[in-house]
Design a protein around this nucleic acid. Structure first.
Lengths: 164, 164
DNA sequence: TAGAGCATGTAATATGTTACATGATTCC
DNA sequence: GGAATCATGTAACATATTACATGCTCTA
């Protein structure tokens, strides 16, 4: 469970409440998996139920109370286990984006080309976004570096496909 | 919804009952998304509820009855819509497999290397599997060709990472 | 002083997976 | 003739997303 791994990793660097975590992650387009709000809430609750986290409540002014989570000893153990598993296993990657390519014969050629050009534009936007991250950061964050390269190949490939 | 697209594509080439579809897909490791049994059953039922499919029942000997699905006119329309959307959009790809790489500093270096070598082995197995598919098939199925290349880059990259 | 939007979260729903059920058939 | 396994599917559970709720604070 990669998402739990990420959350444990973050919370070990500093304790946070859920909203803060989401703020943190939602900004970063550079994350290799999606982590949406409601899901983060549930994951934290689950991990607390499993004894990996504890929380204390905090209140700022009249704002709603919020739960600040901390990693427990069991949580640090679980983190290492998850990490070992993540590093040694190879979950089937998924490419929903390319499923359509096997059915292009159902549409007129020119339409396919114009649709794919739209897709290409979206890819390039993503790439540019990662490309603006300074390379010293990319180099210290393998995930970002990975995605940077991925999009590059992706774009090359799609261009090749379009020109056929 | 890529999965529905794939199912509609298949069923348009020939009508089938669910078990047959699963047989068909489960063999092919070359599919770009996962499609598990129970999920296929649900997706077919959903699409029938939406009027994209109809079925008639069939029975062979004393075997359990089975539903043979056919694509309706509305289904063919939906198929084209899904296809257009699939070709023109670019859903965020996910790489759960690499999340761990940003946390390698939590484990001793040698352990990380040996864990990653295990991962590498799994990648290579996947690659070889796709590599045995004859290249004329790969060339006519862009999805397969795509994945073939993907794994190749993936392997190169991980080797590079390990050697650092 | 009303409406926009932040801060914080829950509920309802959709999607996907694992485990179980059940009668034939085949295999030893 | 009992054990595996094929053929067909359902039910229970796990995971993830979208929509909604609610009380502040700021701005026009």
């Amino acid at each position: 469970m990669e998402k739990k791994l990420i959350l444990l990793g973050l919370l070990q660097s500093r304790e946070m409440h859920c909203y803060r975590i989401i703020e943190f992650l939602d900004g970063s387009e550079a994350l290799p998996v999606t982590l949406k709000k409601a899901n983060v809430y549930r994951l934290l609750a689950d991990m607390e139920k499993d004894g990996w986290l504890t929380h204390f409540s905090e209140q700022e002014g009249n704002r709603p109370q919020r739960k600040v989570y901390t990693v427990t000893e069991a949580g640090r153990k679980a983190y290492k286990d998850l990490l070992r598993q993540s590093l040694s296993s190879y979950p089937r990657p998924e490419f929903p984006g390319i499923c359509g390519l096997d059915f292009t014969s159902s549409l007129p050629q020119e339409e396919v080309v114009s649709l794919l050009e739209k897709k290409l534009g979206l890819m390039e936007a993503k790439y540019r976004e990662l490309d603006t991250i300074p390379s010293e950061i990319r180099n210290s964050h393998l995930c970002i570096e990975y995605m940077h390269r991925f999009y590059k190949h992706e774009i090359e490939w799609l261009k090749e496909v379009i020109s056929t």
